[in-house]
Structures are given as C-alpha cells and as structure tokens.
Amino acid sequence: MKKEFPVYDICKFSYAQQDEIIIKPLAPYLRSMRKLHFPHRHDFYHLIIFTQGGGSHTIDFEKFQIKPYHGYFMAPGQVHGWNFEGDIDGYVINFSADFFKSFLLNNQYLKKFEFLNGKVQHSVVDIHEKDQSSVIELLNKALIEVESTGKFQLDKLRIILLELFFLIADIKGESEELRGMENHNQIVLRNFEQLIDEHFLRLRLPKDYAELLCVTPNYLNIICKELLGISAGNLIRNRIVLEAKRMLINLELTVTEIAYKLNFSDNSYFCKLFKNQTGMSPETFRKTL
C-alpha cells in the first residue's frame, strides 16, 4: 500500500527556534525540507512570501502561479503542494494556533485578517510595488528578532507580525474598498460560511443554517446566488467535498471509511454527491493526486 500523505506538526520544522513560531529565509528553508511529501497538510499556520522564482502552488486543489511578491497564507488543515521553477527565494513564517490564540478567536480580527481564515479565495495576496519595501522591512525585522534570546522575544514577534498582518490586510482591502462597505447580505454570507465550517459534518440543509442565522431559507439562498452565483445547498455540499478531497490524499483511508468520517451512513450516497459536485468519483479523483 502506498504511504499516506502526512500532516506535519510545527515541531518537525522548529530546529533551534521556538516551537510556537518559525521565521526563515525561504531558500535555505526549502533546502532543509527536500524530503517533505507533497501534497501535505500542516497543523499550524503557514505563510510564504516569494521575492523571486516561479512555478505553481496548489492550495486545497486550486492552482496558483508563483510570482515575486505574491504571498500565500494557509490555515491548519489546508492541503498544499508546489512545483517550483528557477531560483526560489522569499520568506516563510510558521506559527501555531496558540501563538495568536486571542485574536484568532476574535471575529473582528478574523474579518480583518481574512487571509488567515482557510478560504482559498482569500489565501493569495499580490503585494503592490509601493508596499514591497515596507513588507520586506517587517520580515527582516522578524528574522532578527526570532534569533534573539530576549525576555520578551515572543511578544515582540507578535507585535511585528500583527503590523505585517495589518499591512497585508490594507493591501488586500484597497481593491475591496471599490465595492463599498460590507452590506448586510455580505455579513450574513460571511456568518453562513463560518457556520458551515463549524457544523458541516452534522448540518446538511440550508434551513438548518437559516434558523441559526435568523433568516428564511429562501432569503439565504437568494444571498448566495447574488454574491456567489451558487445556491446555499451547493455551498454546503462544496464544503463537504473539500473535506473529502483533503481526506482522499490519505491513501490508507478507504472511500467507505471517508464516507463514515464525513457522517454518511450510505457510502453510495457519498459517492453520488462527490461525483455530482466534481464530475468524477472519489476513486478517480484519488488517481489524479
């Protein structure tokens, strides 16, 4: 049987640095990770900002072209892999969920730092030329601090990274300001997506979420079609299928076991849903990995 694709914990990458946070130049980091399996998952937040090189980077089965001054932000559990071209360099930051636990539990911060929410559509940022020097300055400052042994090292690192995150949020927000302030429908949709992440293993029908959101199922469906072009039911099913894809990279799990883990009592129904959403069976998808 083929070896399963692993989920890596932050300790594997820590070496002499703190187990809670790792900040390194990208080129030597990649040389030390040559034996890393792809695709794979992490149990920590994983940020890469490229300053040179090319190729592609896949996050949750969606492919992006690598370009200098593109940043990629991955949350715990997301599947990713890469195919590099040329000389690659940049910066990598890994930090545990506990490192920023206070603001990661705060909805206001999560709204501001949407690139940390584990949604592929928010995972990539194009750093504008006018902001590149500011971003690099903060990254270099973090590199120096992570090698220090000061009493308040971790707190200083939190401050530096918060400044970086606010800068990245402002960069991403510039284009979004053209669409105007977030309206009520967008707030409902954002809350709906968050509830799906929390409850998709148990709640499968739009009416269940509409009740939690204090709206009607019809209104919830209208919002999804207006803002995303898909139905509320499809949004729920897409999240189930994403989790199925993440599990399918583990070659030691059978399709039946995956269906059970996803709370399907009928394996055939799971396979039918997967094929309806992706156009292929779980077995065929697994062969494409």
Rank of each mutant, 00 (worst) to 15 (best):
L36I: 14
L139C: 06
F264M: 05
E137A: 11
F64N: 08
I144W: 13
S96W: 02
A75I: 04
D155E: 12
N183G: 08
R239C: 10
E176Y: 09
P68V: 08
E114M: 00
L143S: 10
K245R: 14
G90L: 03
S14I: 09
Y72V: 11
Y29L: 02
F100N: 04
F166E: 05
L105F: 00
H80M: 10
E4R: 11
F44S: 01
L201Y: 14
V7K: 05
A16K: 11
Q194S: 05
N276H: 14
N94A: 09
K151L: 13
R202Q: 13
A16C: 02
G118V: 02
L138I: 04
H128A: 14
S281A: 15
R34W: 06
E129G: 00
I168T: 00
N276V: 15
I23G: 01
D155V: 07
I249Q: 02
Y69V: 03
F99P: 07
Y219H: 10
M280I: 12
L105G: 08
R31W: 13
E182G: 06
F44T: 01
E145F: 15
L212A: 09
S56V: 11
I66M: 02
Q132T: 05
L47Q: 08
P76M: 07
N191R: 15
P206N: 15
K151W: 10
L139G: 02
C224F: 13
D266R: 12
E62C: 11
L235F: 08
V255E: 04
L213I: 09
F38W: 04
Y109N: 09
Q17N: 08
S56H: 13
K3M: 02
E257L: 04
R179W: 11
F270V: 15
Y69E: 01
N185Y: 11
T288L: 13
L143F: 10
D208K: 07
F165S: 02
K12C: 05
L36T: 13
R239V: 08
D266L: 04
H57W: 15
L143M: 11
I136T: 11
L195W: 03
D87F: 02
E4D: 03
I23R: 00
N183H: 08
G118N: 03
M280K: 13
E257H: 07
S56G: 12
E137D: 03
L203K: 07
E177S: 09
L220F: 07
L212V: 05
A244T: 09
K63C: 13
R237V: 06
K130T: 12
L178I: 10
S14K: 07
F115H: 01
E211T: 12
V7D: 06
A97T: 08
N238L: 08
K3P: 00
N185G: 05
T216M: 06
M1E: 00
I222D: 05
L227K: 12
D9P: 01
L178S: 03
N94E: 13
L189Q: 03
L273C: 10
